[in-house]
Amino acid sequence: MGLVDRGRLPAPLTKLFNIGRSYSMWVYQWGLACCAIEMGAAFASPRYDVMRLGVIPLPASPRQADFVVVSGTVTDKMAPAVKRLYEQMPEPKYVISMGSCANCGGPYWDSYSVTKGVDQIIPVDIYVPGCPPRPEALLEGVVLLQQRIRHEDMAAKWRGEEYQPLVKNADAGREPVVVGGGPIE
C-alpha cells in the first residue's frame, strides 16, 4: 500500500478502501463499570447483536483491535492503564467513549479520584451519552463511526493529521460527534 502512505491514493480508491474498512472492524471492549453491562448486551446478546453491522467483538488482545469502546468510569488509578492499552493498538484506530462517565466524568464530576472524561487521556472520535446508554444507542455510535470512517481522508491520517473528511460537506467534518446529532452522510 505504498500509494496510501505516500498520500497518492486517488479518492475513489480511498472511498473503496474506507467502505471495506468500515465493515470489517474488530472492537476491543474496555468495559469498566455499569456501561460494560450494556456494552455486553449490545455485543454479546442475541437481541442487540452487533455482528450484523460488520463489527466483531472480543479480539484476543488490543494489538489486533480496530477500535476501542471505553465504557464506564475512568479513575485516576486506572488512567495509566487506559493510556498504555490505547498505545498498544495499531493504527488506524478509533475510540468510542460510551456513557457519561467516560464522556465527562458523569455523576462523579466532583469526585477526587475520577478522571473527568476519557478524552483527557486519549483522543475520542464518537461520544455516546447516557447513563447507561441503551444498547441501541451504542449501536448508533458504531454506525456513526462507520460513517465517519467512510468519509475519512486516509492520506491525511497517514500524514498524522487530525481527522479530515474526503469531501468537505457540512456534516462529515463536525466535531464532536455525539450520538443523537444525526447521521454524518
Partner: peptide, 21 residues
Amino acid sequence: LYLPGEFEGYPLRKDFPLLSR
C-alpha cells in the same frame, strides 16, 4: 487500599475539599 500511591491528603476528612466544586 483504594487510592494510588502518590495521593496526598485524607479524602474523607471534612476539611478535604472537592476541587471540582
